[in-house]
Design a protein around this nucleic acid. Structure first.
Lengths: 244, 244
DNA sequence: GAAAAAGGTTGTGCCAGAGCAAATTCACGC
DNA sequence: GCGTGAATTTGCTCTGGCACAACCTTTTTC
């Protein structure tokens, strides 16, 4: 990561921006101003590594706008996408898990605005600011739940169901309503979907083609629109699944 | 859970028992005595559900002796084993993740002694007792890391490697040295191993047979001894893994 | 605006590992 | 010491989905 984390100041970064976000919502304007005193703001183009796995966790982050893709890379170079983080959430919060290195790599899935603070302030935040710790642990809990869900899915479901589930999760969490359905709000390739579901882009491509013929989804390059979410739900949560 | 959580008192449950365990190790004897004032102690035979997924998290737990298997069950009734918890660790700590229900089911993998406290004391513990919160979050962090590791493995590795890894993890975390190797310290079936690695008991059985012929492991019913850990490591971390 | 690169589609062969079935072995209670 | 049920082994079959490959389409670059 290039190290000019200096304030490429936004038009105005005022208290009202943070006041809406859960970790800060119970704070006074005074407190939010304190917090903003120490913040760095940064705009990252799509595809930027905000931090890398195993790096010393010197800062923690709040995504103000855009999407973050959390990724892990195997010794043999394969990527696995852990989850996507929508704006308004903290990330890179290694300290909340008692770690001093980042457990995964964070890459912007679209152009993003990222706030950050030095990790040394973490303890101050959790102690001093009402509700900050609680909300943080809720976020952690939600993500843990999500990862657990993926383990379950990968252990028990067929590829088609996994991809359907991944897509449903994407539109639930990051969906934007458009004319003919709900669109995933950031550029996403078949390759990406395959890395989220432990399969190959070929298989994802075939599934998408099939679903497009059935009128469940439509897609252009890097764009996916789900036009019949319920149809996908039916595929995702299948009749018998005669499994292990 | 049957609700006679009363003190089936152990011979002696004194401060020295807790003083060695990380979450309590920085506390004074006085403080540990306070903590013991509110504790319930309970002995669970093998196979007992200590609590079930989605149940209201009314208590949190410390495993004093034995092993806990953390399990999730799909809508279609299949089990997936998330992880095993060795003695000396907290579990059922939904509050640490901002939840008020248990995220998974906890079953004793062998006869176990379990301490527990009402969840209402959780905030007191984290605020009042030096180091308790920190150690807790380290535990959480370690488990999250482990689950993430499993996602990676399931996404990128072959069955043989996954089973080898699972076995290595078991002997690292819960291994007991015996004459001809290291033995998994609680009863474990091929079925269990298959539920940990998202495969079938048949495949696990075949692998075990092969490994036994190669002199890597030996096993009786419900008992597994790894005699050549390094041999397993070689299998677990394979040459090419021409993958996705 | 031509070339290159990135992303996407589709056909084919193949095999790891699941499913099924049946036999065998083991542990434990009586 | 015997009977029973659970755990394990093993042979056979079958198939989902991956590897490989060729080609097409859109975007980016210069």
């Amino acid at each position: 990561m290039s190290e000019n984390t200096l304030k490429k100041i936004l038009p105005k970064l005022d208290t009202s921006l943070l006041a809406k976000l859960p970790p800060f919502s119970r704070l006074s304007n005074e407190q939010i101003r304190e917090i903003l005193n120490h913040v760095s703001v940064r705009r990252h183009p799509e595809g930027t590594h905000v931090f890398d796995e195993a790096e010393a966790a010197e800062r923690f982050f709040m995504l103000l706008d855009g999407y973050i893709r959390v990724v892990r890379i195997t010794p043999t170079g394969e990527q696995v996408i852990s989850l996507h983080i929508p704006s308004g959430q903290l990330f890179g919060i290694a300290r909340a898990l008692g770690r001093d290195t980042y457990p995964a790599t964070a890459i912007t899935a679209s152009e993003s605005i990222v706030l950050s603070w030095p990790t040394s302030l973490w303890d101050t935040f959790t102690e001093k600011y009402e509700g900050f710790a609680t909300e943080t642990y809720k976020t952690v809990g939600r993500r843990v739940g999500e990862v657990n869900m993926r383990v379950m899915e990968m252990a028990t479901q067929q590829v088609e169901q996994r991809v359907a589930n991944a897509l449903l999760r994407l539109i639930n969490q990051t969906g934007r309503p458009v004319e003919d359905g709900i669109e995933v709000d950031f550029p996403i390739t078949r390759q990406d979907l395959s890395e989220m579901t432990a399969t190959t882009l070929h298989t994802v491509s075939r599934l998408m083609s099939k679903w497009e013929k059935q009128g469940l989804v439509s897609s252009r390059r890097k764009r996916i629109i789900v036009s019949d979410p319920h149809g996908l739900v039916v595929l995702a949560h299948p009749k018998d699944n005669h499994a292990h």
